[in-house]
Structure formats: C-alpha cells, structure tokens
Design a protein around this nucleic acid. Structure first.
Lengths: 212, 212
DNA sequence: CTTTGTACTAACAAAATTGTTTAACCAAAT
DNA sequence: ATTTGGTTAAACAATTTTGTTAGTACAAAG
C-alpha cells in the first residue's frame, strides 16, 4: 500500500538496467558487480542490498531474456487467413524485425544455455509444448498447400531452422563480418534492409515448387 | 637441438588439451586455472610454470582457433574447372562437414570477438584481404554465369552470408533445438545428413534462375 | 662425483571479487 | 518529538582465484 510500485525506487531500476547491459556484454562470469554498480551510479553495497547476490541479479535478467527469446522464435508464425506463402513471408519479415530490435539477445541466450545447460529445464519444457503445436499446425498446412500444387513440400522443422538461421546468424556474427564486408555494412540501416530482403527471397525460392 | 619437440613434454600437451576443453566450454572468464589443472591431472603450479598466466594460456588456444575459423569460412570456395553451380554446391557441403567436425568453434570465436573486440585486429586485417579477393572472384564468376543465363544473379556477399548462416547456425543453437525437435534430432548423425541436404537445397534453389 | 637445468610439488602470498556490517539520513506515521 | 522503516555510504570481512617461491628429484653433461 505504501510502496510506490510505479517508480520502483529508481536505484533498483538503474541497477537492473546496468546489469542487463553488463551481463549481455560480458556474460555471467565476465561481469563484475562493482562495474554494474558504477555503471548504475550507485555504491556496490546497493546492488547486494537490492538483489542479495550476483547470481540472483543474473537470474532476474536471464529469465526475462529467455522469455523474450521464446517470443522471438515464435514470431515466425502468424495466424491469419491469407495464403500460407504470404503468411510465411510476413512471418520471416516480422521475425527479422524482432531480432533487429534485440540484436544481441540470441547470442546471450545461446551462450548461457551452452555454459549452464542444467538450469533452464523448465523453460524448455514450457516452450517445447508451444513449438510442438505450432510446428504441427504448420506442417499440416504445408502438406495441404503442397498437395494443392501451390508450393514445394518441405519439412516444417527444416523450414523453421532455415528461417531462424538466416535471420539470426547475421546479427550474431555482425562484429566479425562488419569489417570484412566494409562497404556493404557501412550503412548499417541499408544493410539490414538488404539482408531482410535476401532472407525473404531465399525462403520464397525454397518454397517455390520445382518445374516438372 | 636438445629439446624433444615430438613429445612436447606430455604435461604441456595435457594442459593445452584440458585448457582447450575448458575454455571452449566456459570462455575465458568462466574457466578456472585450477579446474584446467585438475582436468589435465597436474598440479596447478604446473600450469603457471608452463604458461605463466591464464591469459597467456588463453592466447595460445584462441589464436589457434581463430585460424581454424578463418579456414572454415574459406572452405565455402573451391577452385576447380567445373561449372560454378557445381562448385558452389561442393563448397557448401565441404563447409558443412568442416563445421560438423568442429561444432563449437564458431560459438567460441563469436563470443570471444564480441566480448573482447579490441584484440584480434591483426587477425581481421589478415583474413580481410583473403576474403576480399575471394568474394571479388566469386562475384565476377557469378556475373558471367548469370549473364549466360545459367543461374540467377546474386550479390556474392549475400550468398556467402546465406551459406555460412545456414551451415553454422544449426550447430550454434543445437543445445536449444535438440530438445525442441526431439524426434528429428534424436538420431544425431541422421539429422546432420538431412540438415546438410536441406542447406544445399536452399542454396541451389536460391541460385535457380526465375522463369519469365 | 659434481654441476646444471628441467620438471615438479606443496605451501604460501597476492590480488581480485563478492558479500556484510555499522551507522547515518530522511520521510512518513504515531 | 519520536519511532519506524526504507535507503544510502564507507569501511570491512570472507572467499575465490590467480600467481609465486622455495626446495626436491632426477637425468644428462662435464
């Protein structure tokens, strides 16, 4: 009653913000609580006061991010009444935009799951069900469209992998390719537009039925 | 003259081996020198005796791995006298196989470059030249083949990104997708074969010229 | 047989990092 | 005014992790 939830004690918010940046950049063990505190402009005792331990602070961040990634993966699918091909195209574009808005989320989550596999079982079982259902639906729709001769048949799971690979990987390896493709990547905004178009083109061609 | 290079003092080798595993798994800051020593079956003083500091040991590993990744990226290109399309297809397959043989190399290098961008300038300038030349060659060949009506025109750099995205990302996110696609990924060997075929199919369709 | 240098161990020291405590401050409620 | 409780700073303590040192063993060279 007496707690002002809307402000959430500024300090707490600033620590969370700084922690997010620091953890995304350097990972759990690379991040330093003192650095997070500095970045937030508070003493590092404050960090422990609010979040007890580094580990607990990390939990706060990672679980939020995990959910975001769950959402990102599912953005591939849109439910709508347009033709399947159009919906897939839209899904690819939306998925790309979503990731462009959170460019280093995938790397962070991948790294975390790789280094601490044991944690995150619950997460997996949660999204596992959703993904199962969505992939099942998609496959049935593909089967129908392919049978009607509107597109080539494809394993929905492979298509799913194609899409997330194309959309995510450019961002993951951007620090590496940027200097290699200087000219192309110099105008970052322009590059992203071109890249999105290329990904859509690749997927659309993948779904084109082969002429007899 | 008096040093037996062939054996390289077993201990030293074992430390290097253990360090590679530990660093690949946990990254520079996640790895513990004591753990590396244990894993190698030596006292941890030995680690410092041979490699002075954790940082120097890490250098040894990372620079070796960076070169490997340079090679991996270049495997896309084969120089040969067959038609361009065939060469690209072969390149995709070889690239896939190369990565399948070093499945967690890309993630490691990407993470390292992301968290410590300042180091590795020299690396970049080195491979930058090679990539430039190869992409230039490839583009000219594509221009020719496309003009001759043998394939669709495509920006060589985008094609390059398509290929490495498809080939690498499956491995990077394997820990995540494995439980999601249980049935498909259960037989790991079979999955890899299917995935390679899918990647080749995607790229081949990408290069197919669109009917008028 | 002594010297010399490398490989090695165990204990120790130093540094870095996380976590705690004490006490002060301030606003609101009693 | 006084108490109460959340917030803060500064100093300190504990732990973890890295790095060093002093000394032993042993093999090869002189």
């Amino acid at each position: 009653m007496d707690k002002i939830d809307s402000a959430k004690s500024d300090t707490e918010q600033r620590i969370l913000q700084a922690a997010e940046e620091e953890f995304l950049q350097k990972g759990l063990e690379g991040a330093r609580t003192t650095t997070i505190a500095e970045r937030a402009g508070v003493t590092h005792a404050m960090l422990h006061y609010y979040f007890r331990t580094k580990g607990m602070l990390f939990e706060r961040i990672i679980s939020e991010k995990m959910q975001q990634v769950g959402n990102i993966m599912l953005t591939v699918f849109v439910s709508d009444d347009r033709p399947l091909i159009d919906r897939i195209k839209l899904g690819v574009e939306q998925h790309f935009d979503f990731i462009a808005a959170h460019p280093d989320l995938p790397r962070f989550v991948i790294q975390e799951i790789y280094t601490h596999p044991e944690r995150h079982e619950m997460m997996r079982s949660q999204i596992s069900g959703i993904v199962d259902r969505l992939l099942g639906d998609l496959q049935r729709q593909i089967d129908r469209s392919a049978a009607a001769g509107d597109m080539a048949w494809v394993d929905a799971r492979m298509l799913f992998l194609d899409i997330i690979s194309l959309n995510i990987f450019s961002f993951i390896c951007f620090p590496i390719i940027k200097p290699l493709l200087g000219e192309l990547t110099a105008d970052e905004k322009g590059f992203l537009e071109k890249r999105k178009a290329e990904n859509v083109a690749v997927i659309m061609k993948r779904l084109k039925r082969t002429e007899a």
